[in-house]
Design a protein around this nucleic acid. Sequence first.
DNA 1: GATTTGAATTAATTATTTTCATGATTGGAC
DNA 2: GTCCAATCATGAAAATAATTAATTCAAATC
Lengths: 305, 305
Amino acid sequence: MLELRHLRTLIALQETGSVSLAAERVFLTQSALSHQLKQLEAYYQQPLFERKTQPLRFTLAGERLLTLAHELLGRVAAAERDVARIREGDAGELRVAVECHTCFDWLMPAMDSYRQHWPAVELDIVSGFHADPVSLLLTQRADLAIVSEMEAQAGVVHHPLFAYEMVGIVARDHPLAEKKIWQAADFAGETLIQYPVPDDMLDLWRKVLLPAGVNPPRRSSELTVAIIQLVASRRGVAALPYWAVRPYLEKGYVVARTIGDGGLRSELYAAVRSEDAPLAFMQDFLATVRERSFATLPGLTVLAG
Amino acid sequence: MLELRHLRTLIALQETGSVSLAAERVFLTQSALSHQLKQLEAYYQQPLFERKTQPLRFTLAGERLLTLAHELLGRVAAAERDVARIREGDAGELRVAVECHTCFDWLMPAMDSYRQHWPAVELDIVSGFHADPVSLLLTQRADLAIVSEMEAQAGVVHHPLFAYEMVGIVARDHPLAEKKIWQAADFAGETLIQYPVPDDMLDLWRKVLLPAGVNPPRRSSELTVAIIQLVASRRGVAALPYWAVRPYLEKGYVVARTIGDGGLRSELYAAVRSEDAPLAFMQDFLATVRERSFATLPGLTVLAG
DNA sequence: GATTTGAATTAATTATTTTCATGATTGGAC
DNA sequence: GTCCAATCATGAAAATAATTAATTCAAATC
């Protein structure tokens, strides 16, 4: 018999394009999902998708159930929001502290969606760069902070959002474009183009360059497009999230390369005060960010608690 | 985490007004449902309904989830119909043989709903009274027969529809109105008002009067209202399904009494040819009849396969 | 042709659901 | 009031379902 679980699986399948990635997305093993899908296809006595292709393709029946999934899950979320509001009311204050430039790429659509659902919550952005964004929470100057590490701190809990890969980008005719994988040493002698933030907020610096003792010259820009432009003009190299540069890769302005063996993985967490963590309007903000981000950004991976 | 199962439970709760009856409706024990509801209320951290009242009353949160249930389950049914049609096509022939007068009360709304969903199925009624309606199936003159007993027959399968209570009705000032429970002997000396059908098609005859050797005089009418009218005019007594007479009971035209200890229980089955049983348009007809009947007729009980 | 990657399969394990047996609570009937 | 019947709740056991581990299979890639 059909359950919501099956519909959540179908959406994960659609968003990831493969059984194994979908499994990770719904926090199950590939095997578990294979069983679940087999059961579902047996129930409807017909295949729901073709596994031979990459990404997988849904059959007519699969498409129909996928449509159902989208119809239903939105309504479930709406109903559960209402139920939570019946318990806790609909108002609240949510000042978000952000310190990464690219974060706005996913934060804007998520906040947009959230605002619709929680019109009575005072939503605000506390932007800027602080030595310790978590201190903004404890001093009541922000209610939620987006951070890239899960530093234990009394009175604060960290909720994992998602993980993604940082890629190195360079002009197509630059010598480094020849190398599939860049190591720390490859950055020596290159100009590194970056956002104007302290070094220790850059994953590339903290995880790659600093440990290797490499310290290339820098240039900085506030805007992602400007960074891309400088890189395309052979002014230097940069490291940016894959999802931030994909549009430019597709247009061929620059090429992307893996940084370090296995790639440079970045993570994002939302830190909130412990007492705020269980609040419905807070929980739903996290759920919205995750849901919207996975649905719109390519190449995200889940981040376990 | 919310699943469709929970929503099906909520609808059963609404339709039956009690946990035990809802449990029967969804083919679980009362205990199982009690656990399920406890889990659901723990998940939402608030009560979903008040159990003290009869019928039970939903809380605001419960109401909201109930609304969700109605939104979702209709869409699920529609999607599953589409999926079945992708497999088997949307056409078919469905000639329904009916031999009980009151059956039209539930058959009409069900067929109405069904026609909308399966416009390409040729739906027809084969009315009239045959010694053996099942023979209509085997001679290809009907595709589905509504019967009141599950007589084993090669090539034919019986699907349970529902069960209900037959009540005795009589004028308010008639002496029999004084008796809470009528026994076979009480019918001796009364005129029995019935539909113009052979005796062995009447549950009252087969299960009560014939075994006791009681054979009261008869009068017959085609229409339920006419039978009620005759009873109210003290022309005799009748036995009719509870759901068929409830509107008249509420208006006080007649009163209803239990027949035999524990009441006279009637059952309805749909008989179809074995080879037609798995067809989607046939399965959905059965599902529609059950769903519509339970949603609209009072006092139905489930009938196990 | 070896190697890698993704999905399927079987058996075992784990988690969840359901039931059984029983206890508590409530709302009449007398 | 007290008894009775009906309804719901509870804890432990049983049954069922979901999930994983380990492995195989199949296809694609080098």
